[in-house]
Simulated scan of single mutants.
Amino acid sequence: MDVFLGEWANLLIRWMHLVVGIGWIGTSFYFMALDYSLNKLGQKQGVLGTAWQVHGGGFYFVEKYTVAPPQLPETLHWFKWEAYLTWVSGFGLLIVQYYIHARSYLIDPSVLPLTPWQAIGISLGSILAGWAIYEGLCRSPIGQNTTILAICFFALIMGAAVFYTHVFSARGAFLHVGALTGSIMATNVFAVIIPNQKKMIAQMIQGKTPDPYYGMVGKQRSTHNNYLTLPVLVMMVSPHYPFLSAHPHAWLVVALILIAGASIRHYLNRVDAGDDWKNYGWTAPVAVGALMIAIFVTAPRSSGGGAAVSDAEVLAVTQKHCVMCHAAKPTHEGFTEAPKNITLDNIASLRQYAAQIYVQAVQTNAMPLGNETGMTQEERDALGRWVNAQK
């Protein structure tokens, strides 16, 4: 029953994460597109630009003020809870999936033998440290130079990727790069963008002219969030695609995803701005090139040559490493039924799911979870030779 309720908790939190995340991403994309589409010619004093828009059978007229309107309106519509709840639900998933089941999903003894509490402590401490470094960079003189700041932030994420791949399991490492980046994005909203807006409102209430500095800083952080969105989305779904992380160059894949995602986002932003293709066309080949390199880097390796493997030998391997989960009645504490209803306790089932076995246990080393049973490379190669012999 505990496992059953845990699965429901996982599903409901994940559903919430998707819903509020879509809301957050949607507002980010919309307001960036709105900013870039503003007509800035012939505007009245104090107005940066205007835009006529049509949607759902209605017409809308939007004005953006250079700093703030002359008078504070009675009602302001804030866009903050989507960001807050995305982080809260994401952290809830981290707890339910990776902290409670740290030995299965977060720890790999072959990478670094950790206790669950050690792994959780490293997770929390590293996320906090990553945010502190980013915040320090933004508040330092480096934060005044967009290019240098971008390079430093890229280096920060790369450093985190290398660190995580030497501490956590493959899927745990990749997921944590996304968790760190997503936490920085949410904190930008919670600790910078919204407080700065409130400071401007407080100045207006006091009859003062709002300081444009607060708006400029908020816009900077909002732009960071916009460019990070696409890479973070890939990292958050990466546990479903173990080929991204289960190899020695996972940190390089992180770099390529950042380059591709940010390039695609820049391309879309400049399209919204109506720029000449000559000014942003370079982003398309950069994004495609990064993705092609990522495909090459993650290409499966050969399982190697060697002696033929008998049915009895492969059954011995799966009995030792697979059937604790993939059986009619699993003995693993985390499952009450076989994952995806796949049982691997007989030769007929092994032949039926040979392709999935090859991907999960030979090509990517994603299974067993966290390599709890200590499956060796020799056993993986033997399993691969048996699968290849079935073709």
Rank of each mutant, 00 (worst) to 15 (best):
W87R: 13
W87E: 01
W87K: 09
W87G: 01
W87N: 05
V88R: 03
V88I: 12
V88G: 13
V88Q: 05
V88C: 13
S89G: 05
S89P: 14
S89T: 14
G90T: 05
F91Y: 14
F91N: 13
F91W: 14
F91D: 00
F91P: 07
F91M: 15
G92E: 15
G92C: 08
G92R: 02
G92N: 12
L93F: 08
L93N: 11
L93W: 09
L93Y: 07
L93M: 14
L94R: 10
L94V: 09
L94I: 05
I95K: 03
I95S: 03
I95M: 04
I95L: 10
V96L: 14
V96F: 13
V96M: 11
V96Q: 08
Q97C: 08
Q97T: 07
Q97L: 09
Q97R: 10
Y98C: 14
Y98D: 09
Y99S: 08
Y99R: 07
Y99W: 12
I100E: 03
I100G: 12
I100W: 10
I100Y: 10
H101G: 09
H101R: 15
H101E: 00
A102L: 07
A102V: 03
R103E: 13
R103A: 09
R103K: 13
R103L: 09
R103T: 08
S104L: 07
S104R: 10
S104F: 01
Y105D: 01
Y105Q: 12
Y105F: 05
L106S: 11
L106G: 14
L106Y: 01
L106I: 00
I107V: 13
I107L: 04
I107N: 09
I107Q: 04
D108C: 01
D108Y: 02
D108L: 03
D108Q: 03
D108T: 02
D108W: 01
D108M: 01
D108N: 12
S110C: 02
S110W: 01
V111A: 01
V111N: 00
L112W: 01
L112V: 06
L112Q: 04
L112I: 03
P113T: 01
P113G: 00
L114Q: 07
L114M: 10
L114Y: 06
L114H: 06
T115D: 13
T115S: 15
T115N: 08
T115E: 15
T115C: 10
P116I: 00
W117E: 14
W117M: 12
W117K: 11
W117S: 09
W117G: 02
Q118T: 04
Q118L: 02
A119S: 14
A119Q: 02
A119F: 06
A119H: 03
I120Q: 11
I120F: 12
G121V: 00
G121D: 00
I122W: 12
I122K: 11
I122T: 12
I122E: 01
S123M: 10
S123Y: 05
S123A: 14
L124P: 06
L124H: 07
L124T: 03
G125Q: 04
G125H: 06
G125K: 09
G125P: 12
S126G: 12
S126H: 06
I127E: 06
I127F: 02
I127K: 06
L128R: 05
L128Q: 07
A129L: 15
A129N: 11
A129R: 09
A129W: 06
G130H: 02
G130Q: 03
G130E: 06
G130F: 02
W131V: 15
W131D: 15
A132P: 02
A132N: 04
A132L: 08
I133P: 12
I133N: 11
I133R: 00
I133L: 15
I133Q: 08
I133A: 15
